[in-house]
Design a protein around this nucleic acid. Structure first.
Lengths: 186, 186
DNA sequence: ACCTGAACACCGTTCAAGT
DNA sequence: ACCTGAACACCGTTCAAGT
């Protein structure tokens, strides 16, 4: 990439970080280009798709999440490890209001720029879940897709101004339901 | 209301039902007016706001839900009554993809056309929850807002094509977590 | 009373023309 | 190679003009 192009790319990304934080996932791409002082075509050249932009914005969080999953795979308590990963997943998605929808849709859309990242993340969560299940720490009637759905649902709750104050509380409720082995039911 | 106006209103509503079912909550109002063969101003006269349209679309479901809540208030098992109401709530919201966001935002926005309906619904759910709690059938560390949030989260899951197949399963998981009294924890 | 559609200010996306 | 901005087809919202 040419030096000027790289500079444009970085600047667009920095501006997008601000605008998407403010306006959420349906922020105006035109507005981002404008505020970056760059032609509209440049925006589309670097980020041909809205998902491409999200992927770049979420890149850091995704990588951290993957690295952390690796570490947690060897943690003492597989139950705690699972909960800790899910918390980070929710926080990562909640970073930009509304992106969770794209992160979910990407799972079934191989053409999405988010497909690879999200599939990897889902697999990492599934591995942590499987280990917890193998050690009897998590209920065995759910799989990686259910886990991803629950994390997504919590991120969605966090995105709603009227509900966001409850997200920690409901996180505890839901992880409690995941961790409680079925053998302790009444 | 004049006869011709009433006719336009009914027709717009019928067309909107089709279009919003197809396209979801962010369907084009212009397109609805066009497909109804009506001027754009007529659309705005009858439904000055997107929420006004949603309110009319959801009216029937809301009324049924309210009537059902009344009946369930006297049901034998307050736990089953709560679960049954929540299931109907989720189904009602899931009727039109994406409306759940407006139904949630309306709770804190007195100016929304959905405010009255949604506040009433939330209160009905809260009453059923309170009865279940009083009889020891539901955990006591959640309130009506938490219940509304959980129902909303499930409706959101149902709205995502990649996740909708899990909504029944996750409904069971979540209602299980609501109903399990804390006294049975390990 | 009610309806119409032009007008305005936006948007996403593409692409010929420039450097 | 890369950038620009006009052009196109949309959108929500308002409002003067019609019946």
């Amino acid at each position: 990439m040419r030096a000027d192009a790289r500079k444009n790319y970085e600047h667009l990304l920095a501006v997008a970080r601000v605008v998407v934080t403010e306006e959420g996932a349906d922020a105006s791409l035109r507005d981002i280009a404008r505020r970056a002082g760059v032609g509209l075509g440049t925006m589309y050249r670097h980020f041909p798709t809205r998902e491409t932009l999200f992927e770049a914005l979420l890149r850091t969080g995704f990588d951290e999440l993957a690295a952390n999953a690796e570490k947690l795979q060897a943690a003492d308590s597989p139950g705690d490890a699972l909960v800790s990963w899910l918390r980070e997943f929710v926080a990562c998605a909640h970073n930009y209001r509304g992106v969770i929808d794209s992160m979910v849709a990407a799972i079934e859309d191989p053409d999405s720029a988010l497909h690879a990242s999200c599939t990897t993340m889902k697999a990492a969560g599934a591995r942590l879940l499987a280990r917890a299940q193998a050690e009897g720490a998590a209920r065995t009637d759910i799989d990686g897709t259910d886990l991803y759905a629950l994390g997504g649902a919590l991120a969605w709750v966090g995105d709603q101004p009227a509900l966001s104050s409850r997200v920690d509380h409901l996180f505890t409720l839901i992880t409690g339901a995941i961790l409680t082995p079925r053998s302790t039911h009444t």
